[in-house]
């Protein structure tokens, strides 16, 4: 499988009152054509920022891409190339379908406008196609929905509208940033299976960003675990989840409540992700890691192979 999206050593820095602070430090990952790839991590780990950097939507100022390259289908992406591919080859959906849809335009308009701009469709043709797309993402009575406004729809329906708008120009890569976080559990499952189904049908690649490990396990083939602006572990989803090598991944997996256990306390990871300005030297997880010693504070550990196609950034990874 050839790589569709290749991110290499990507760093994003923000200007603050106390100088420039790196919020993303050397992230590398590679998404194959038609593959589903998951990025997990707590809030503040830099997973959304990675997606925004691919889209060319990092708020600038104060942010900027300070290092690294992003390739899409072999082409190195600069700001101009990103602007050209946005909405056509690479589409994105967001966490809050309420605030991500414009309240003062109809659903039909928001799905159809991309078609008019990118494919130069007429008003009539774009509306007809928008209705088709809405029907396709499971919205009943799509023709009537065209003239409705976002506030007239439920959360799940709104996210379906977002998906329809994103898929309008048949992108090769869909970036889904926490697409189910704001939804009810039953709706979450529906949206996830819709995404999986659409992916099978269209053959597009999906980059799914979430803090929900359950979601990742359900829908993706490969995963990258992020912590404090770095990838700490990456590989196929089964070995990463069944035999995690990085202490952070292990701790993360342990903190999922199991339904069949009468555990009184959940083993939560103590502390929280530090802000970029306060990142510790060496391995950034070391202050929260139960196995850390002096060696862990010296240098940032590189990603090393712990098994075939399975890498972890830890100087003493758990053996598989």
């Amino acid at each position: 499988m050839s790589a569709l999206l290749e991110i290499e050593d990507l760093a994003v820095a923000f200007r603050t009152e106390r100088g420039e602070v790196e919020a993303l430090s050397g992230v590398s990952l590679s998404v194959g054509d038609g593959q589903s790839f998951g990025v997990v991590g707590e809030s503040g780990s830099g997973k959304s920022l990675t997606a925004l950097a691919v889209m060319g939507l990092v708020p600038d100022p104060p942010g900027r891409i300070s290092r690294g390259t992003i390739r899409f289908a072999g082409e190195k992406l600069d700001a101009r190339a990103k602007a050209r591919l946005r909405g056509r080859e690479i589409a994105m959906i967001f966490q809050e379908p309420m605030s991500a849809l414009n309240p003062v335009f109809t659903v039909g308009e928001q799905v159809a406008e991309g078609l008019r701009v990118h494919e130069r469709m007429s008003h009539r043709a774009a509306s007809a196609r928008a209705a088709e797309l809405l029907g396709h993402v499971g919205i009943p009575d799509p023709v009537r929905r065209l003239s409705q406004y976002p506030h007239e729809l439920s959360g799940g329906m709104r996210q379906r509208v977002m998906i329809a708008a994103a898929l309008a120009c048949r992108p090769r890569l869909l970036i889904a940033d926490e697409p189910t976080t704001a939804l009810d559990v039953t709706i979450q499952a529906q949206i996830l299976s819709l995404l999986a189904e659409l992916q099978r049908e269209t053959g597009m690649a999906v980059l799914l960003i979430t803090h929900d490990l359950g979601v990742i396990a359900q829908v993706v083939k490969r995963v990258a675990v992020m912590y404090a602006g770095r990838v700490v572990e990456t590989g196929p989803v089964v070995p990463v989840f069944e035999a995690p090598a990085h202490p952070y991944t292990r701790a993360l997996l342990r903190s999922i409540p199991a339904l069949n256990e009468d555990e009184v306390r959940l083993p939560a990871i103590p502390g929280s992700v530090p802000v970029p300005a306060a990142w510790p030297p060496g391995c950034r997880f070391n202050p929260r890691c139960e196995l850390a010693d002096a060696a862990c504070t010296r240098a940032a550990p590189p990603l090393i192979a712990v098994a075939e196609d399975h890498h972890a950034a830890c100087i003493r990874p758990f053996a598989a």
């Binding site: 909405g87 991500a100 414009n102 991309g114 701009v117």
Partner: peptide, 12 residues
């Protein structure tokens, strides 16, 4: 607002 980001993400 998020919808402005969405509009940009659409490549408008």
């Amino acid at each position: 607002q998020d919808y402005v980001r969405t509009a940009r993400a659409k490549g408008l």
